[in-house]
């Protein structure tokens, strides 16, 4: 020790500091994640093993197989996928041209774009309880709860403003000069959007789409109130486990895993573009 140079001592000290920091960070991260981790673990238990909390056991695929072979579960999974896919698709189809026009469109009144944008923003603030009573009574009356389209249009209405809000700031980053130049060349608005602006805001489109997909996959309030047995999504299905006081933990865990994993994986893969979309949309706009 004594014949260490000052330089070496310094380096060692820094290494120890980094090691300690790593341990602290990972300790906190794993502890924070542990409820989900334990759920994933319990999915590989039998009902008998899952009754009391434990970390070491003989893993089995039995429960997962049981859950996946359940026809009901399959139906909810299908419904969730349907809602996610079509909500995201339609939201993008509606919101891309809208936010493009909000930024570059010319209206009779100059303030139209600005005020329409503000209107979209305020609808994000509207909580679903504000609309649930009329929607619920209509849906009962016209039997829309029996059709997946009922929930779908509600989802589209609620998520278009979010996409508009995110894309608006991405379109604002597109230099006006490019659009103006193409206008002089006789480019139609549609061509401007599709072949000039859209490639430039690709990141925005992707992150807005992903955010909507995750929101819809996890959405509960509207799904709970506007669906029937055949049209319910996974988040509604998960709520049915609320009455089981400590029973069927393995089944609960396996079902949760199926319900949670897609959104978590999607979220993890897309963290970077999500951050970009959210901060650009909010800090700048």
């Amino acid at each position: 020790m004594s014949n260490m140079t000052l330089e070496q001592k310094h380096r060692l000290k820094r290494k120890i500091k980094t090691a300690m920091l790593t341990i602290v960070i990972f300790g906190i991260a794993i502890f924070y994640f542990s409820p989900i981790l334990y759920m994933f673990l319990s999915a590989f238990k039998t009902e008998h093993q899952a009754v009391m909390p434990m970390l070491f056991f003989q893993p089995t695929l039995e429960t997962i197989k049981l859950v996946l072979s359940d026809r009901n579960m399959f139906g909810y999974l299908k419904n969730s996928l349907f809602q996610v896919f079509f909500t995201t698709l339609v939201c993008l189809l509606l919101a891309i041209p809208a936010s493009f026009a909000l930024v570059f469109g010319k209206f009779r009144k100059k303030t139209t774009g600005e005020s329409a944008y503000l209107w979209f923003i305020t609808t994000i603030l509207l909580p679903p309880v504000a609309v649930i009573i009329p929607l619920y009574t209509w849906y009962q009356k016209f039997n829309l709860i029996k059709s997946p389209l009922g929930l779908l249009i509600a989802y589209i209405g609620f998520h278009v403003p979010i996409v508009v809000w995110m894309l608006h700031s991405f379109f604002k980053d597109v230099p006006v000069s490019i659009i103006e130049a193409s206008e002089l060349d006789g480019c139609s608005r549609f061509r401007q959007l599709v072949s000039i602006a859209l490639p430039l805001v690709r990141t925005g489109v992707i992150s807005a789409g992903l955010l909507v997909a995750i929101f819809v996959w996890n959405e509960f309030f509207l799904a709970f109130n506007l669906t029937g047995n055949d049209t319910a999504t996974l988040s509604v299905y998960m709520a049915r486990f609320r009455e089981q006081q400590g029973m069927f933990v393995a089944q609960l865990s396996a079902s949760s895993m199926v319900a949670v994993l897609p959104a978590v994986i999607l979220g993890w893969i897309t963290q970077k573009s999500l951050v970009k979309g959210l901060t650009l949309g909010s800090v700048k706009g």
């Binding site: 906190i28 991260a29 794993i30 924070y32 994640f33 409820p35 989900i36 334990y38 759920m39 319990s42 909390p53 995750i214 996959w217 996890n218 509960f220 996974l234 988040s235 509604v236 998960m238 709520a239 486990f241 609320r242 089981q244 006081q245 400590g246 933990v249 609960l252 865990s253 949760s256 319900a259 949670v260 959104a263 978590v264 999607l266 979220g267 993890w268 963290q271």
Partner: peptide, 22 residues
């Protein structure tokens, strides 16, 4: 970072029943 991010992507009904039972 990914581990810390996890709970945000979990649907609230699932995290509710998981916390409640386990």
């Amino acid at each position: 970072r990914t581990l810390i991010m996890g709970p945000f992507f979990v649907m609230s009904t699932a995290s509710g029943v998981i916390w409640k039972t386990t």
